[in-house]
């Protein structure tokens, strides 16, 4: 843990305690403890298969954890009624690794899907709102009428970002936002994420392997290793944290405690 920061006494926006999840008897999360403070951008790092995606899927209610608590604004969502939980999740947005845009709908309906599905907006207004959201993420007005399948990977990511923020959520999750993009497009997406999160004043949780992206997006960072959080601290410290696991991962070095474990 970093000791440079003064302790924040506010109630965390998201608090995970003792989160455990196994698949077919194999533990993936083995007691995850994590606090994400309001308005902060937390980046969760970790190798493939360490449970980063499972962690955010548990928070989003897509996977039920075996043990532990998930608190949002101080309330354990796992003990809430379905209706209460739906209301909490209604304030979240999610950008999936592959975009997960709906093939059967044009781009503008994808962007305003949540608003349309809940009947909060007419189709005409949704179309206008989608165009505004697309312009915000650097896409032209004509993109709204296109099919998602006809867009490039970078454009799909931008549309997915526009969809994630269209309902102005309090908490936004980003799953590998720059995977599969060239470095320049990755930097563009990171910039858009930072701008959108700041504009909304939202709390953000990002999982990534991309260290450049982690430093650009994150205020704070956490390292997930063997199903546990082994380090948390400012994202700016990545690479010189003093924790050999984190430093090796951040520098992408072949030799170190993670590689040693792989060889055993």
């Amino acid at each position: 843990m970093s000791e440079a920061q003064a302790p924040d006494t506010r109630t965390p926006k998201i608090r995970l305690r003792g989160l455990k999840k196994s698949f077919n008897g194999k533990p993936v999360l083995d007691g995850v403890d994590l606090d994400v403070m309001p308005g902060r951008s937390m980046v969760i790092l970790g190798g493939s298969g360490t449970g980063k995606s499972v962690t955010i899927k548990c928070i989003l209610g897509l996977i039920e954890p075996d043990e532990g608590t998930i608190e949002i604004d101080g309330r354990n969502v796992l003990t809430m009624s379905r209706r209460e939980r739906a209301a909490v999740l209604d304030r979240t947005g999610m950008l999936f690794q592959n975009g997960a845009l709906f093939d059967s709908l044009p781009v503008w309906e994808n962007v305003c899907f949540k608003l349309l599905a809940q009947g909060r907006i007419s189709r005409e207004k949704a179309r206008q709102r989608a165009v505004e959201a697309l312009v915000d993420v650097g896409l032209g007005m004509g993109v709204g009428e296109m099919d998602p399948a006809s867009l490039s990977g970078g454009m799909q990511k931008r549309v997915a970002l526009a969809r994630a923020i269209a309902s102005q959520p309090d908490i936004i999750f980003f799953d590998e936002p720059t995977t599969g993009l060239d470095p320049i497009m990755g930097a563009v997406i990171d910039g858009l994420i930072v701008d959108c999160v700041k504009r909304l004043g939202a709390t953000a949780v990002t999982i990534t392997h991309d260290m450049a992206s982690a430093r650009r997006i994150g205020d704070d960072a956490a390292m997930l290793h063997k199903g546990r959080i082994v380090w948390t601290g400012p994202a700016a410290e990545l690479g010189h944290t003093g924790n050999p696991l984190v430093d090796q991962f951040a520098r992408g070095e072949r030799e170190g405690p993670i590689a040693m474990e792989l060889r055993r």
Binding site: K57, L60, G61, L62, A86, L89, D90, T92, G93, M94, F96, Q97, N98, A100, L101, F102, D103, F113, K114, A117, Q118, R163
Partner: peptide, 12 residues
């Protein structure tokens, strides 16, 4: 392709 999970995250 995670579209069903996306529906859930979009409150549907």
């Amino acid at each position: 392709t995670d579209q069903i999970d996306a529906l859930t995250t979009l409150s549907t």
